[in-house]
Nucleic acid binder design. Structure first.
Lengths: 194, 194
DNA sequence: GAAGCGTGTTAGTAAGCAGTAACATTATAG
DNA sequence: CTATAATGTTACTGCTTACTAACACGCTTC
């Protein structure tokens, strides 16, 4: 535990972020420890001294992710109960959240057959988010502010859209991740309005 | 060229499909030639005799895909110019098309840093499909049967949704790929109706 | 300045894997 | 039945890569 003052990242932190950067691009097997060391700015020996094995670095990455789950805290406080406003806010929040863990997402996709738990975990987080949106839509239906229908299917419509957009821009990096998000959400909001 | 009568697949065909099956799960590097041989029901030697190298199998797979592009033929003929009907038909057609090439899709995702061309090619096919939907929506707008707006953004809304659904079920295989497709498309169709 | 810690360097081992060579066996066609 | 094509078996080479051992260097701290 260092002082809270942000200093130069530690050796293990630099190795971890280098590993994540490389493996989210090429996958576990294609990345060599030598490449990790070079990316982190150390010698290969230091990597082995710090983590013991290549596998241990990956394990630590996943452990770190699982212990710092994407925060879903205070979205509910920000609801205005105006349909389009809220759906846009929820979508923007989703994109912020997943953008922060997109490298872990890519890794989980590429190594899904080796570490199915991680991939399922990430999927479950998305489902949780969909549940929140579904809860919201149920409330809106009760208030006569949203069209009647299965709220989970309605929420999933929005979330599959958001996921499709996220995945596209994550695997094919370009600018403008959120380009046209407002206009697209407006279409869905209109489809859900009364 | 054998007779047209469908016989037992040839050696090279069996090796190719075994390779695609394995590599779409684990990626190029994690699959050994020995595993390919076992999956195809041959000895390792036969694989090398047939293709010369591991890389050559992959090259052939991609070549086959590029020479048999997903057919987009006669969708336009099937349009009814009823918004929801057509958007559902287009979505179903999209899912049929991509389901047929989902293994190539998975491979292109996992090897995207090694073969960016394939990944971009697949993305371009999706964009072409979006263009078709956008053309359709433009026509519908002109006929006063769809709400005014940028038709490409409208089409992309539907297609990001479809892609999100496809990707979810492809990377996390379960039954019911098209479950709730109709209800979800109905939401989007409602958002696009006049 | 001595001790200890973090890091680098060099050399090496062991395992896995792509690919080759040579010969044996089985299946198929004429 | 025989010749040929397809496939199997075994043994091997060479390369890559995870990982270890041993020693050297420099920086901080007391």
């Amino acid at each position: 535990m260092k002082t809270k003052q942000e200093t130069r990242p530690s050796t293990s932190e630099r190795i971890l972020s280098a590993t994540l950067r490389l493996m989210s691009e090429k996958g576990y097997r294609s990345v060599t420890v030598k490449q990790i060391a070079a990316e982190a700015g150390f010698s290969e020996m230091t990597v082995f001294r710090t983590f013991g094995s290549k596998k241990a670095i990956l394990d630590r990455l996943i452990e770190n992710y699982l212990y710092n789950p994407p925060a879903e805290k205070t979205i509910r406080d920000r609801l205005t109960y105006d349909l389009e406003t809220d759906l846009l806010m929820l979508s923007e929040f989703y994109h912020e959240t997943v953008a922060a863990t997109e490298q872990i997402y890519l890794l989980s996709v590429m190594e899904r057959s080796v570490m199915p738990d991680l991939h399922v975990n990430i999927h479950n987080n998305a489902t949780k988010f969909t549940d929140i949106v579904a809860d919201y839509l149920r409330t809106m239906q009760e208030q006569g502010k949203a069209v009647k229908g299965d709220p989970f299917v309605q929420a999933a419509t929005l979330m599959y859209f958001n996921y499709g957009k996220f995945a596209t821009y994550t695997m094919l990096p370009r600018a403008d991740r959120l380009k046209n998000l407002q206009a697209a959400v407006a279409v869905i909001a209109r489809g859900l309005a009364v």
